[in-house]
Write a protein that binds this DNA or RNA. Sequence first.
DNA 1: TTGAAAGCGCTAACAT
DNA 2: ATGTTAGCGCTTTCAA
Lengths: 341, 341
Amino acid sequence: MKKRITLKHIASEFNVSIATVSKALNDSHEISTSTKEKIQQYAKDYHYKPNNVALSLLNKKTKTIGVIVPNILNYFFTRAFAGIEEVASKNGFNIISCISNESYEKEVNTMELLKNGTLDGFIISLSEETQVKNNYGHISNAINEGLPVILFDRVTEMVECNKVIVNDLEGAYNATKHMLLTGCKKVALISPISNLSVGKLRIEGYKKALTEFGIKIDPNLIVKIGKKDDFDANIKILLGDKDIDGLLCLEEDSTIKSLEIVKKKRYKIPEEMSIIGFTNGKLPKHVTPNITTVSQHGTYIGKLAAEMLIKQINNQLEQGISTTKVVKTSLIERETTKKLY
Amino acid sequence: MKKRITLKHIASEFNVSIATVSKALNDSHEISTSTKEKIQQYAKDYHYKPNNVALSLLNKKTKTIGVIVPNILNYFFTRAFAGIEEVASKNGFNIISCISNESYEKEVNTMELLKNGTLDGFIISLSEETQVKNNYGHISNAINEGLPVILFDRVTEMVECNKVIVNDLEGAYNATKHMLLTGCKKVALISPISNLSVGKLRIEGYKKALTEFGIKIDPNLIVKIGKKDDFDANIKILLGDKDIDGLLCLEEDSTIKSLEIVKKKRYKIPEEMSIIGFTNGKLPKHVTPNITTVSQHGTYIGKLAAEMLIKQINNQLEQGISTTKVVKTSLIERETTKKLY
DNA sequence: TTGAAAGCGCTAACAT
DNA sequence: ATGTTAGCGCTTTCAA
């Protein structure tokens, strides 16, 4: 095991100063061709690599960005993460990643831990607990300290910064409308994420569509399910209402579970029961019948967020102006909805 | 935007030396209580945080580990990644992550980029291209330079280091045996990953089981499918052999696709056709019929790898001895296989 | 063409 | 109890 070699070693090897070696390796014109050549050769032979930590200290730039996502078993976040990674990597940035696991504490701790010069900026999607607590001091602090921060998907108006989001309201609106247009009379909504900004917006979209169709909003049809609640029981109670003929599920796992319950109840899908779910992952596509979904274009969101952050880090963005990029969702029609003619 | 504050600022604020401030903040007994108090208070008020980059330079420890995975849309790697993250985070380590996207070049570049003092160690699962090229110089180099490296899942005997793997051979052996024991006479194998170490081992396991049952190995039943090959066409050709009554799929996506083709052919599952797939993700569980799988315990593998690396970094492992931890797979029986009585 | 010195932010051994 | 100095590895004036 050869220890890593430094400028100092090379300098002493050739009896020159460290500065000379540094310049030689940076191909400075100040240095004679002959010394440059021999130093460069030596550096190559001994696999010299500049110590990035020293450079970071000097430049006050680490070429590293922090990414905090609430979880990673979720298709949307996985895609978004991959999108961020791709753009970052192309621009020579490393990614320090943290999975907050929906925990406020972990989110805060991570930020505290990393707000110490390790990072050039943050890309964050807020944890559920953070959105429930409605406490964003850790984010504002970072911004106040001059750290570039981009919020994506799960955002808040409480902090002013650049954001990338999906048009959740419109996505839910379109989905609901589609069911209504294809003949559904009584559409229910199932939300295990009513704590989240995105969940709230989707409920708004649902309501908007109903209202537009002159349908009175029935709170009993809006099923908000907590983490500890019995999901199956709640859905079964809901389906006690035999008139329900449409289900809008705000999150992937619950979409699948709802479908399974509906199947067990032997509803004809989509004739007697339409289903649309958020997040267009592999699951809805391969399940039987495969499920019409609202696609959130995770990869694209991730890419946008990373591009925005990198621009901000490089000061290529107008100062003091916060913009929010909104990505349109698409409805991916499959077998759980009727066709629109 | 308040710039970040340094020891220097505090020192000048109180007209003391930087060293005094440093000691005061570290609660050194050398410093009088009164100065300690006022300095600590000031630091608190102005949100002083030690610059981690400076500390890293000093300590030659970054408390950061690099994780390179081939992709992240794969359930196993997602879980493994989450496992690594959990353990790292609990031990105060950050994770710099890279998705190699099965690219040798990206894997090598990332390692080169990060072998510069940024990291205390690496956890790597080799990219497909790397395993095809069979070129592991970048890994050996890192190890020779004294960087701790753990390989997991996709490993190679070409480099000596600590590893965490799954007993792929035995997993495939058990799966095949299960089909044979439940009455299958002609079991075929479908592998889109025959390039990978794990793919090869699984084929060995399959063969071992057949041999044990006195069944001659028929190369036509071992379908190796490349990235560019037409998957569906290959499977359909295979299923031209009407005697085939069992399918062992070595990877998740192909398991799902195979099931879909089998369903279209209207085989009765599992009576006329048994199917077992590798990777116990959400997909096989929720598809109809749900699929018997070989679980690789991704989270656990990830945790083991991270624990091993951290121990190695902390010199809590015996030097010079490389160990390989083998995690047993489990067969998760579902509807695509017959019951064993 | 080369080198000395200062400094990035911090700690620690060694004065005072 | 406090300060001075040196140094982690590097770049960059400025001087020789």
